[in-house]
């Protein structure tokens, strides 16, 4: 796995997943569909990489998971934001905005 690219992607994907979970519990497949819909297909990601992201977030205590029944009556694992996850989302969002603003300033300065 090459470092710089995955690191960036990893961080970004984690943020995206956190954001999508803010509107309520969802399972992995739901999240992949939401990414497609919300980004209007602009983001090219492997659906499968959502799962490592979910596990990472779970390990750090930002989301918690429970088995539930999906809308087509099958067992699926549902993820939900924790209080720590909400805080993390806010913090990462701030950090992202600061970064984006700073980058914008630098790029525009030239």
């Amino acid at each position: 796995m090459s470092d710089a690219k995955t690191d960036l992607l990893q961080g970004t994907l984690d943020l995206i997943v956190l954001r999508l979970l803010r509107s309520g519990p969802a399972n992995g497949w739901d999240i992949t569909q939401s990414i497609q819909v919300v980004s209007k297909g602009a983001l090219e990601i492997n659906y499968g990489s959502v799962y490592p992201a979910l596990r990472r977030l779970e390990a750090r205590g930002f989301v918690k998971a429970e088995w539930g029944t999906s809308d087509n009556n099958r067992r699926a694992r549902y993820y939900e934001l924790t209080a720590a996850g909400r805080k993390q989302l806010a913090a990462e969002r701030d950090a992202w905005e600061r970064f984006a603003t700073a980058l914008g300033l630098i790029l525009d300065a030239g």
């Binding site: 492997n46 659906y47 499968g48 799962y51 490592p52 979910l54 596990r55 390990a59 750090r60």
Partner: peptide, 21 residues
């Protein structure tokens, strides 16, 4: 195809939860 490499991603997810610790 959309999912990506199932084995590799499973392994990555698996280690994501414990390697982190």
């Amino acid at each position: 195809r959309d999912f990506g490499n199932v084995t590799a991603l499973t392994e990555e997810a698996r280690s994501a939860s414990r390697m982190d610790a």
